[in-house]
């Protein structure tokens, strides 16, 4: 799950239902999809991938946007169930509060496939998504690699965290630190931490203030790409980028472009196509009688200048313009 659980007005999460018209010969199968919050480009990319796969398989989608609010999510799912769906593809907004939606589908006898964000509770066929700790682990590996490449005894930098207490943020941070410890680099890589709410302008402001106190840092890592893009503006306002190595998580097209230009060093790519299309595929597979594994994991991938061209191609396809 990439997106933060940022505070927002409850009304901001109005029910938004949209149905794609059925096409192709397998029409008759109707899959309900509940998204976490379509205002996030990553989730919009999930949706695009899900719609493309549904069109290819000729199944009908009925979609709903939870707007990051678990109570809206439950209302949406109840509406979907009343309309009659054969399978629910479900992207949870919350680790615990989303269980109510899954249980509602269980009671209605509708099979559930979870994707991207996973909730505890209820019964689901499978989870199509990524292990969030893996992204933190890859960031940790990247830090160890730049330490080794630098030849210095130790490195110092900023770690921009997302929202305090949010699940994804904790998973990434814990895994990053665990990787540093495993490589024996914990005391050779000093992290100065601040939360920047997964937000670009906040990432910029926090980095500006931190740079005033520590102008000579070696790196900045962030728990998402928006924050590292804000940090990039702050760094470049003081001089050309490059002296400070920057890395984020998501692999948004904008960051991939900066990696290709050599202004950002790395990002951990999270694949929306694998997750969005995979969820629809899992539903269809189940309905046609195939057994599903308990988890269908879509791996993260560290993107640097070496492999950025290939990932950019994939990102262009799923994010659109």
């Amino acid at each position: 799950m990439r997106c933060s659980s940022r505070a927002r007005a409850p009304l901001a999460a109005l029910l938004a239902l949209a149905a794609c018209s059925p096409s192709g010969e397998a029409a008759g199968v109707r899959i309900g999809v509940s998204y976490q919050a379509l205002e996030f480009p990553f989730v919009a990319a999930l949706q695009r991938a899900a719609q493309a796969r549904a069109a290819a398989l000729g199944v009908e989608l009925v979609e709903a946007d939870a707007g990051n609010d678990a109570s809206v999510e439950l209302g949406n799912v109840e509406t979907l169930l009343r309309r009659g769906i054969d399978c629910l593809a479900f992207e949870a907004t919350s680790l615990d509060a989303s269980a109510a939606s899954i249980e509602a589908a269980n009671r209605a006898g509708v099979p559930v496939v979870q994707f991207n964000g996973k909730a505890n509770g209820g019964r689901s066929l499978t989870f199509v998504g990524s292990e969030q700790s893996e992204s933190g682990d890859l960031l940790g590996r990247w830090l160890v690699s730049i330490l080794r490449a630098s030849g210095k005894p130790s490195l110092r930098g900023f770690y921009l965290r997302g929202v305090a207490g949010q699940v994804t943020d904790l998973a990434r941070s814990d895994a990053l630190r665990a990787r540093l410890a495993r490589e024996g680099s914990s005391d050779r890589i000093e992290l100065i931490e601040q939360f920047a709410d997964y937000d670009r302008s906040r990432g910029q402001a926090v980095t500006e203030s931190l740079l005033a106190a520590h102008p000579d840092v070696d790196f900045i890592v962030a728990n998402n790409d928006d924050m590292i893009l804000g940090a990039l503006v702050a760094v470049e306002a003081r001089g050309p980028a490059g002296r400070i190595a920057l890395a984020g998580v998501d692999g948004l097209p904008e960051v991939l472009a900066r990696i290709a230009e050599g202004r950002i060093a790395a990002s951990v790519f999270q694949n929306p196509e694998g997750q969005g299309a995979g969820a629809i595929q899992a539903c269809v597979d189940h309905l046609s009688g195939k057994a599903l594994p308990a988890e269908i994991l879509i791996p993260f991938e560290l993107v640097t200048r070496e492999n950025v061209a290939r990932v950019q191609e994939l990102a262009r396809r799923v994010y659109g313009s």
């Binding site: 009304l11 205002e39 948004l252 994010y319």
Partner: peptide
């Protein structure tokens, strides 16, 4: 303005979900 807070945000996301850069 609680209503327009929601409506204006909805319009922004509907109009353009991806960031505008370059």
């Amino acid at each position: 303005t609680l209503g327009t807070l929601t409506a204006y945000r909805g319009f922004a996301v509907w109009y353009r979900v991806n960031p505008v850069y370059d």
